[in-house]
Write a protein that binds this DNA or RNA. Structure first.
Lengths: 208, 208
DNA sequence: GAGCAGGCTAAGCGCTCGCTCAGGTTCGGC
DNA sequence: GCCGAACCTGAGCGAGCGCTTAGCCTGCTC
């Protein structure tokens, strides 16, 4: 699969399943605003304005501003989990699957940086129930990566002292990309993905 | 140097240089509130309340709420830079200095998680001038780590394909600790520091 | 072509925000 | 014992917030 759908204009194509059209435009506007300013610094008037509507139109499609963040978080985490699941369950050695997981996960964080920032850093702005639901998805993401590492340890491909700690370090490497990646910077999402995949294989002691 | 000054009750001792006493109490209260809720979700009434004062007292010591964040960011980044500088300029091989830099930097992010969260994740809430000033400090932090890695490459200790990219990955590993570390979790700051230092040495291809 | 449901806006409500200001208290210097 | 400076509070201002409501279009049904 190409990364085109996650970059530039295509970044927002992942929201195609959201209907009707007005609800999707509001959601996309909210993603952009939350990514730029953060949830609490974003006003409902700003979101509606970006979608070309009046502030009141927002409340026809969503009950509250928080519901927008909740839906964005759920869809985003579902996408992240899908990326990791596909990599974890494909054919191949643990080394190949880990490299695939890291490179595609990093590509998503870099190319879809706008979405990824909201998904990874605005979790605490959700209420307790919504946060608990999203945290469950996040633990599943961790579990997919940990599973690959455990496979590699079991098969003798990897040399890892602390599987849980190393898993967290791998996730850190991927997630933090959303914090620093800049589309005007020296790297493409593909290049960062390849670099980080190489670094992760070194971390787990995989043979080159 | 022990890590005691960065943990538990001692976390806030780094603000000893802030005077007078009331100004320091307000600053510490702001650090706690910003770390818990984020800058925009924190009210001046909350900060003043935590410091045991009326909302108006805040404006005797600080011109605006943003000035509080600015001062916190500057002091925090200065501390981070000092930690990295000490490790980078001590005696020893590049391997020893990199391990020292990572373990002490990670210890600071884990033990002083409250401060580190504000310092690393609330940067965008600053105005343009203040942000530019803080970004300069951040680039100096990167440069210290990059310097150690370049030394290791030059001496033949390290095997690194992309020095800039690897530096960013090392910083990611350290900084992201502030996002996930939990004082009630299974690790102490020292343990995370040692684990991440080991992983970083693997990333740069240092001999065990 | 009247009725009606869904989608939208203009106007604005109640509230809390960052911040201000007049005035009170405390305390060292003389 | 009085003065001025430093510090702090109670009260509250103007603004902007999330969200609501009354009513107007538009297009589909029969």
């Amino acid at each position: 699969m190409s990364t085109a759908e996650e970059t530039a204009d295509g970044e927002m194509s992942a929201w195609g399943e959201v209907t009707p059209d007005a609800a999707r435009r509001l959601l996309v506007a909210a993603v952009e605003a939350f990514a730029e300013r953060g949830y609490h610094a974003t006003t409902t008037r700003d979101i509606a304005g970006r979608a070309g509507m009046s502030p009141a139109a927002l409340y026809i499609h969503y009950k509250t501003k928080e519901e927008l963040l909740h839906r964005i978080s759920r869809i985003g985490h579902a996408k992240a989990l899908e990326i990791l699941r596909v990599a974890a369950r494909r054919e191949g050695t643990a080394t190949e699957r880990l490299a695939d997981a890291v490179s595609s996960f990093v590509r998503w964080h870099a190319g879809g940086r706008t979405t990824a920032r909201v998904v990874q850093y605005e979790l605490d702005s959700l209420g307790p129930d919504a946060r608990a639901e999203i945290l469950a998805l996040r633990r599943q993401c961790d579990a997919e990566v940990r599973g690959i590492i455990e496979d590699g340890v079991a098969s003798g491909e990897f040399d890892v002292l602390d599987v849980r700690g190393t898993t967290l370090a791998v996730m850190s490497l991927c997630i933090d990309v959303a914090r620093w990646f800049n589309v005007d910077g020296p790297w493409t999402p593909d290049e960062v993905g390849a670099l980080d995949a190489d670094l992760v294989l070194r971390m787990v002691g995989a043979a080159k």
